[in-house]
């Protein structure tokens, strides 16, 4: 099993963090994993994406040309990565910020709206992760939650709570 994911959006959307949670959970699942970031020259608001590979075998290149899964968080990223999906690849699109039209095998969720509904726009990434978990059974919910607990700042328990809620909402879509 090798799962290659590209997660793309804009700086500030928690793109890198989404990838890191997945990678940490993969580590907890005793998988081989790589996480490779890419930023634009802007620190906030620019394009951002990361590449995560989860595998049962040693991983060669951490760079992904054709992805098994694309998680797209805004319109610009959709345009940029639309051709980087394998033929049978999964595409998850944040329809709050991206108009996907009639794309084959694309599933959508209003992740940003969900996050706003939960009172924290920053947790849209976790809603997207939830939807991914519901559709691909590579990493267990248990290990994702464990990874989130491990990575969450200890002095802000409410932050972990709202992230977990977003994750659940994403799974329920």
């Amino acid at each position: 099993m090798t799962e290659r994911l590209i997660i793309a959006g804009s700086g500030g959307q928690g793109i890198m963090l989404l990838g890191k949670v997945l990678a940490e959970a993969a580590l907890l699942s005793n998988k081989f994993v790589t996480w490779l970031p890419a930023y634009g020259p802007e620190v906030r608001g620019g394009a951002a994406h990361c590449m995560v590979i989860i595998s049962d075998d040693e991983i060669g290149s951490p760079y992904i040309d054709q992805a098994d899964t694309l998680i797209i968080m805004n319109q610009l990223s959709l345009a940029k990565f639309i051709n980087r999906r394998k033929d049978n690849g999964l595409m998850i699109i944040n329809s709050s910020l991206a108009e996907s039209g009639k794309l084959a095998k694309a599933i959508t969720g209003k992740f940003t709206d969900i996050a706003i509904g939960l009172g924290n726009i920053k947790v849209a990434n976790m809603a997207a992760l939830g939807m991914y978990l519901a559709h691909k059974k590579i990493i267990s919910l248990k290990n994702i939650e464990k990874a989130m607990r491990k990575m969450a700042p200890k002095d802000k328990p409410e932050l972990l709570k709202v992230n977990l809620e977003a994750l659940k909402k994403g799974m329920e879509i």
């Binding site: 890191k20 990678a23 580590l27 081989f32 994993v33 790589t34 996480w35 490779l36 970031p37 991983i59 951490p62 760079y63």
Partner: peptide, 9 residues
């Protein structure tokens, strides 16, 4: 830069 910035266990 790839090796420096990528994460692996």
């Amino acid at each position: 830069g790839m090796l420096g910035q990528m994460m692996e266990p």
